[in-house]
Computed example of a mutant assay.
Amino acid sequence: MPFQKKAASNFNARRVRTFESVEGLDDFVKVLEKDFFANARVKCQYHADKEKTSLIFDLYCNFGLTETLHNFNNGTWGGFSVDKKDTAISSSFDTAFNNLSIANNNEIDIAEISLHFRDTSIIIAKIYQYSIPEKLGEIISKVSEHFVHFTKGLTDMPYEIFVPVFEDKMKSTFELDKNYFDYWGLYFENDKQHDVVIYSLKSKQLLHKEDFFFLD
C-alpha cells in the first residue's frame, strides 16, 4: 500500500533557508520532500579554495524502516525505478540533482545525506564526485537485501547506520578502493558503550571495529 504523507509533529524538523546563490535548490528540496514523504533540512557549505558548494541534507520521515523498505520494493517511495533488463536503478533524485548541478555550472555536490526514520537513521557520505546521487537507489536496495542480517535475524534494529566505513589495512598509509558495498557501521541501543559494530555486506556478518574508520 503506498504511503500517505503524515503530519510531522513527532519530530523537530526545521527547513533551513537556502542560499540564493544556489540556483534551483528550493525546487530540488521539493522533489525530495514529495518523493521521500519527508521534511527536508539542508545546509550549504561554500569552499572558496575549490569554488564549489557542498550540500548536506537531512530528510525526516514519520515512519519506520520496515515500512519504508516495503514501499521501496513496491516502487512507491523515493522516486526509484528499476530497469528489469539490467536491474539498474534510476531515480527522480538523480534527475533532479543533475538539473541542479547544470543550473550551477557543475560546481555543486552532495557531501552527505541522512535519512531519519522512526526507529533508525541512515547516514550516507560522499566518497567521490556525485557518488550519492549516483548510488542512492542501490544503497537503499542493499539495505533491503541485507535487512535480516544486520538486524540480527530481525531481533535488533540499529539506531544508526553509517554508509560506508573502510578497512584500514595499513594503519597509516593505504590505498582505498572506495566502495559503498563492502562495510557499514552500525550502532545498537543495547550496546552499553554505544560502540560501533561493523557489518560486512560480503560475508553478511558483524565484525570487530578496530581495523575500520569512518569518513569525516
Rank of each mutant, 00 (worst) to 15 (best):
D182I: 05
F11W: 10
K5G: 08
F188D: 06
Y180E: 11
I123L: 02
K5P: 04
G185C: 03
A40W: 03
V143C: 14
R17Q: 03
S54Q: 11
F3A: 10
F97R: 10
T95V: 13
L100R: 01
K178Q: 14
S9P: 00
K52V: 06
D195M: 13
E145M: 13
E51G: 04
F93R: 00
L154E: 04
I139D: 00
Q129K: 12
V16E: 07
T155S: 15
G24I: 09
Y159Q: 09
T120F: 03
K171N: 02
N71M: 14
V165S: 08
W184R: 02
F174V: 08
I102V: 13
P133R: 14
H47Y: 09
S81C: 05
E134N: 09
H208M: 10
N74D: 11
F147R: 08
H194W: 10
S203Y: 09
Q193A: 09
N179R: 12
L55H: 00
K178E: 15
D86Q: 15
Y199H: 09
S172N: 10
N105G: 10
E51R: 05
V165E: 04
N99Q: 14
L32W: 02
T76E: 15
E33A: 11
A40L: 07
I123D: 01
G75D: 01
S200F: 07
F162P: 05
H194D: 14
Y180P: 06
K171G: 01
L69W: 07
E51D: 05
P2T: 06
S203V: 07
I56N: 06
A13I: 10
F147P: 09
E23I: 01
K126Q: 12
P158I: 03
A88Q: 11
Y159E: 11
I132N: 01
K202P: 04
Q205R: 13
K152Y: 09
A111E: 15
P2D: 01
T18Q: 06
Q129E: 15
V165L: 12
L55I: 03
L69V: 07
D109N: 13
S172A: 08
T87Y: 12
F57K: 05
R41T: 13
I161K: 00
K202M: 11
E138K: 14
I127W: 14
D83R: 03
D182G: 06
K202L: 15
E189M: 01
H146E: 14
I140S: 00
A7E: 12
A103E: 09
K171D: 02
E20I: 08
K192A: 11
R15Q: 13
K30W: 04
L65D: 03
E134R: 10
S81M: 07
F37A: 10
D83Y: 06
G24P: 04
L201I: 02
F150S: 11
F57A: 02
K202F: 13
V163H: 02
F162K: 05
I89R: 12
K178N: 15
E175D: 12
D35S: 00
L100T: 01
E138R: 14
A125S: 11
W77K: 01
A7R: 04
Y60W: 15
S131F: 06
N62T: 11
K178A: 15
N99L: 14
A38Q: 03
R118P: 08
E112N: 10
I161H: 00
F37N: 09
A96T: 02
D58A: 04
F166T: 10
N99Y: 06
R41S: 15
V31K: 03
I132V: 04
S121A: 13
Y60E: 13
S200L: 12
I89H: 10
G79Q: 00
F188Q: 06
